[in-house]
């Protein structure tokens, strides 16, 4: 159910993002979603890919500082208020969202990646309320 997200520590210097994505591309790894957050001197580059284990291995081998984190993917209808409904479910259950970002692929609805403080509970309550939580295989094949 959980999706393996790859996080890469990148210094703020030109070419680092290109380096990461080139290494993945050269190894036939497909990007499904990306996000970057930064401070003045470093950033965290977060990626969802089709082959997370391989991606982590490739990046480690090439000297990047990488970790993997479990996240969830929620599919919501592409209409006003649908994301809010999903997030309200989490808020009502006092589950905190650490960060989130959207999948960059064309999908029927919209797919949002969420990192929450209690992932098991999050999946449970979302499903109970009829929110579509995507299984990992489905996300990797987007």
């Amino acid at each position: 159910m959980f999706i393996k997200q790859i996080s890469v520590f990148v210094e703020n210097k030109s070419g680092r993002l290109a380096d990461v994505t080139r290494n993945l591309g050269d190894n036939g790894i497909d990007l499904i979603a990306i996000s970057i957050s930064d401070t003045t001197d470093f950033g965290i580059f977060r990626l969802i890919v089709d082959l997370p284990e391989k991606a982590e291995e490739v990046l480690l081998k090439n000297g990047f500082t990488v970790s993997s984190t479990d996240v969830i993917a929620v599919s919501v209808k592409d209409e006003p208020g649908s994301l809010a409904r999903a997030l309200t479910v989490l808020a009502d259950e006092m589950i905190d969202i650490e960060y989130m970002y959207a999948v960059g692929k064309n999908t029927k609805g919209a797919v949002v990646i969420l990192k929450v403080n209690d992932i098991e509970k999050a999946v449970k309550v979302l499903e109970e309320k009829g929110i579509d939580v995507l299984p990992a295989e489905k996300v990797y094949s987007l």
Partner: peptide, 15 residues
């Protein structure tokens, strides 16, 4: 140099 890659996804820990 950051040595512990466990921290990579955690902004708060890095900061």
């Amino acid at each position: 140099e950051l040595a512990n890659r466990e921290l990579v996804d955690n902004f708060r820990a890095l900061e």
